[in-house]
Every structure is written in structure tokens, then in C-alpha cells.
Amino acid sequence: MINPVPLYKEMFSKMGPQYWWPADSKMEIVIGAILVQNTNWNNVDMALTNLRDETQLDVKEILKLSDEQLQTLIRPSGFYVNKSKSLRAVLSWFDQHQCDFSQMVGEYGDKLRETMLALPGVGEETADSLVVYVFDQPAFIADKYARTLFTYLGFRGLSNYHKLQQRIILPETFNYKDAQEFHGLIDEFGKKHLKDKQQFKESFLGTFDRKLLNVKG
């Protein structure tokens, strides 16, 4: 098992706060989390700009769009047919609850993540991103950069999202703000230092002692 807190503290001390997720509202985060699947943020930004110009990112206005209109607006993000279906389903779910995030946390409790995973096009990474950035709950987002980082640190068997997340133990003192920062730190670090193993070795984490992260059990 892995306690990632020493790594988080080391990264934060060297890199400072990252202020993630880059968005003006939580609903923009929701939409961005759907659109960013299997693409880069530049493409998402173009799609978000289209949606913002047309709807001001208002949930009800987006839901009023025809399938063809929605697909055209989000086309820059790729896979626009499937993403339009997912976006409509997810936004309909939020709309049913008047986008009252705290009320949704209270209603679903421990079933919140499970409920989101049942929505079309919502996988583990998307669900956890919403848990952390929209519902303000602590969770570890085991995305590709995170899996690469822990692999380079010497941990084995991290071939998919679930395998890494199942090995992470977050202490009770680790809150949602820590989770938000940690994800931002890992992704920004990844962009600069995780192209390959040699690049990682030359970074400030190249000599980080992985034993600090080990948890018995």
C-alpha cells in the first residue's frame, strides 16, 4: 500500500500551488471533464469557447440544443457524437438536482461515485475528477501521469487506473483541497518531467526515496 502524502509535500515544496482545475465555475469543470477524454486541453478549450458563446455554459440552455447543434459545438474535442451523449446525460443528472452540489453529496453519500459511474461515458478518472473538483471530496485521481510517476518511483503492477487507486491510502487529514493540488502538481510535473525515465531521473524527484511512501499491510 502507498501513502502518497510525503510525495505530495515534496512536490508542493518545490513547485508551489497549481490552482487546479482551470475553470471559472464548477459547471465548466463538469463539462471540461467530459470533453477532455482522449484529447488535449487545447481542443477542449476550443469546444468550451463554442459552448460558452452559444449558451454561456448554462445547463438548461445546453440541454435545449439539438443533437446536431451540440455535436457541432463540441466537435473540436473529438469523439463528438459519444461525448454529446455523455454530456447530455451528465448535465441532465445535474439539472434534476438543480446543480446543487452540496445537496447531491448529502443525498448520495458513499454512493456518489458509483452513481456517476453508471452515467454514459463516465469512467473512473472522470468520476474522481468530479468528486474532487465539483463535490469537494478527497480522492486520488490515478490518471496516466500519476501511474507513470509511481511506476518511475519503483512501484510495480500499475497498468491501469484501478490498480493504482486501490493501493493509495489517503489519511483523514488529507482534504479535498490537498487532493485538488496533488492532481494539479502531478499533471504539471508530468508535462515537464515524465516524457521518459531519463527525464524523470533528472528531475527533483529523481532521487526521491520511495520507502517514504510504503505502508505495511
Rank of each mutant, 00 (worst) to 15 (best):
T39P: 09
V90K: 06
D143N: 15
S25L: 05
K9S: 14
I62Y: 03
K83N: 05
G121C: 10
F150I: 10
L70S: 03
I2S: 08
I34Y: 01
S77K: 02
H183W: 01
V44R: 00
L130W: 08
L87H: 06
T151L: 07
T72P: 04
P4G: 02
K177Q: 11
D53A: 14
G106R: 09
R113A: 06
L149V: 11
L185I: 11
V81S: 12
F204C: 12
I62M: 13
K60D: 14
E188C: 09
V134C: 02
W21L: 04
L7A: 06
N175I: 09
Q165W: 08
R156G: 13
D187E: 14
Q18C: 12
K144W: 05
L51A: 05
W93F: 15
F135E: 03
D67T: 15
V30Q: 01
R113H: 12
Y145C: 06
S84D: 06
Q69I: 04
A89L: 03
D53W: 11
L212Y: 08
L63A: 01
Q69Y: 00
V122M: 06
K111S: 14
E181D: 06
T72D: 10
Y108D: 00
S25I: 10
E202C: 02
P76R: 01
V90M: 10
I168W: 04
F182S: 06
W41Y: 11
K192R: 14
R52I: 08
F135C: 00
K83R: 12
R75I: 06
A127T: 12
